[in-house]
Design a protein around this nucleic acid. Sequence first.
DNA 1: AATATAAGGTGTGAAAATTACACCATTAAA
DNA 2: TTTAATGGTGTAATTTTCACACCTTATATT
Lengths: 229, 229
Amino acid sequence: MEEKLPTIDSVFSIDCLIFGFDAGELKILLIERNEDPFKGWLALPGYFVKQNESLDDAADRILYELTGLRDLQMKQFHTFGDVNRHPQGRVITVGYYALIRINGQKDLRPVSPYARKAIWHSVNDLPKLAFDHSEIFNNGFSKIRRRLNYQPIAFDLLPEKFTLTQLQGLYEAILNKKLDKRNFRKKMLSYGFLKELVEKQKGVSYRAAKLYKFDRRKYSKIFQNEMSV
Amino acid sequence: MEEKLPTIDSVFSIDCLIFGFDAGELKILLIERNEDPFKGWLALPGYFVKQNESLDDAADRILYELTGLRDLQMKQFHTFGDVNRHPQGRVITVGYYALIRINGQKDLRPVSPYARKAIWHSVNDLPKLAFDHSEIFNNGFSKIRRRLNYQPIAFDLLPEKFTLTQLQGLYEAILNKKLDKRNFRKKMLSYGFLKELVEKQKGVSYRAAKLYKFDRRKYSKIFQNEMSV
DNA sequence: AATATAAGGTGTGAAAATTACACCATTAAA
DNA sequence: TTTAATGGTGTAATTTTCACACCTTATATT
């Protein structure tokens, strides 16, 4: 455990909290580290920011290099700066998050050698992560949970066309509690930003449900009005 | 304008957004810079983080050195990392905020020579600030405005004992809109965390108002319950 | 003493939002 | 045809929000 590691001067890094939703479960994107420190451990995708790139650009690049995912429109949620949070020296890290559709992003292929592989892991039985990444996860997850109440972030996790039951299952997974079906539907539809499609669910062995789309244009109108009050 | 300044390697800094409330106006704490770049400009109190101090510790130290204020319990709100935000090199800055009582903190005395003086300035007619500090201000102010709706941050700005009219004036100053007196009082009192005092306002030339205290213990109870749902 | 000034303090009814709650309908598979 | 699984729907009670106006009290002024 007391190996000699090179020390580094003060630098900053990015760590990414990428949420996905699959089979009724909320998942988080992790990498298996391929270099010391914490070689072999699971960690959030994260790495150092380069001298001449903005934080936002760095977040995109780093996530791509470690997982193969691109263009996610991540947002910052907190910056972690304890003196000893990194064993090699002073590293301040900025936490970024995004919520995405897992399907269609199936091929997780680290481009850089720093990650051996990238995997989706349920948020419910996370092992201890490298560095202070468990703490970073908890901090980000609780912020997203709160944000769910006033921003339509859930739709980013679902396929473009989804049923109300899927949407409800997602809310329940994030909030970790049961919701009432009738009240949930009434409320969601009352917002007016869901577009009901003619199309129905296929391939299920029970009555097929209506499909809906999130209508970003309608949402913007509603949201803008709210903002200007 | 094209003076030669020393360049610096990548470092991080803290900038502080300190709000106060006085004479019915919301104010922000600014310093007049005493060194290049932006010598003579108004700026948020901010400086570089040392190698061996946490971000939170750095925020406390820096604010003290530049303004003489201490022990404010600031909280982080955003990190700014554009490549060219600082003319001397790559500087990532973490924004911290606090809301405080102006009275009793009257003596603003910069300890470090980097600030010529520190002043309270109304948030309403801010001049252009040094660096990207205007942007940092806007970002932080809008977050605090939103936070006002679900956290009792306003009480930190008032004297320990205050009247409901003062409290309402503060909400109106932060939200920048008029509120209905009866509804405001009803709602505030319904929360149950205001303690009505026997004492009344003094030295006013009209009917003296009842004084209230914010009861942090009662608030914690209520807040904890909400959290655990 | 009377009056003016300035803010303190209070209640009600309408509308909207939230909550609790149970059963029949539809589809595909067995 | 039966079973299993989910889809889909309404109402009444409660709580919250919102709009709205007048009398009271303390001091300063004449």
